[in-house]
Simulated scan of single mutants.
Amino acid sequence: MAEPDAELAEQWALVNTPLGEVWSGRTRYAAAMYFHKRGDMSAETLEVYRICARLDAEDPLPIIRDRGVGKEWLSKMEERKLR
């Protein structure tokens, strides 16, 4: 069964919740778990989101880049920005 586009769009919005908002780190982590479960995100990338979950102002993307993990995820995030 195909996944509803609305669910996917909502999860993209959640994983891109603005930095610094209360509970935004946890929101991004929850959405990251969704993408990991779909196979769109590696366990190493998900771990960065987990570490950042309680740090609402921390951007996980530079950490992912610094660790050299999640290149596919970074490409997807960049691709979404360009839309």
Rank of each mutant, 00 (worst) to 15 (best):
L82D: 11
E44R: 08
R38D: 03
A30H: 06
D56Y: 03
L19W: 14
P60F: 05
D59H: 05
A53V: 01
I63K: 14
A9G: 09
T45N: 02
N16L: 10
Y29A: 09
R65Q: 10
E21G: 03
P60Y: 06
R26S: 08
K71L: 11
A2W: 08
G20A: 05
L61K: 11
M41R: 01
R67Q: 06
K71R: 10
E79Q: 04
E7F: 14
S24Y: 00
A9D: 14
E10L: 15
R54W: 12
D5R: 06
G39S: 11
V15I: 15
L55I: 03
S24W: 01
A6Q: 15
A31E: 00
D56W: 04
K37L: 08
D56P: 04
Y34N: 00
H36A: 10
R54C: 13
K76T: 10
A57K: 13
S42R: 07
P60H: 14
K81D: 05
L61R: 09
E10G: 10
E7V: 09
V69A: 02
A57D: 12
L46R: 02
K76M: 13
I63V: 07
E21R: 12
Y29C: 05
P62F: 12
G20F: 02
W12A: 03
E3A: 11
E79V: 04
V15F: 04
L19D: 11
G20L: 03
G25T: 02
R38Y: 11
R83N: 06
I64P: 01
I51E: 08
D5Q: 08
R26L: 05
E72H: 06
L74T: 00
L61G: 01
G70H: 04
G25P: 01
L8E: 13
A2V: 07
M77G: 00
D5N: 06
P62M: 11
D56C: 09
E78L: 11
A32M: 02
L19F: 15
M33N: 07
A53L: 02
T17M: 03
T17D: 09
W73N: 02
L74Q: 00
D5S: 13
E78D: 13
L8D: 05
T45H: 01
W73T: 02
W73C: 01
D40A: 08
E72R: 04
L55V: 03
E21W: 10
Q11S: 10
D66S: 13
A53N: 07
H36Q: 14
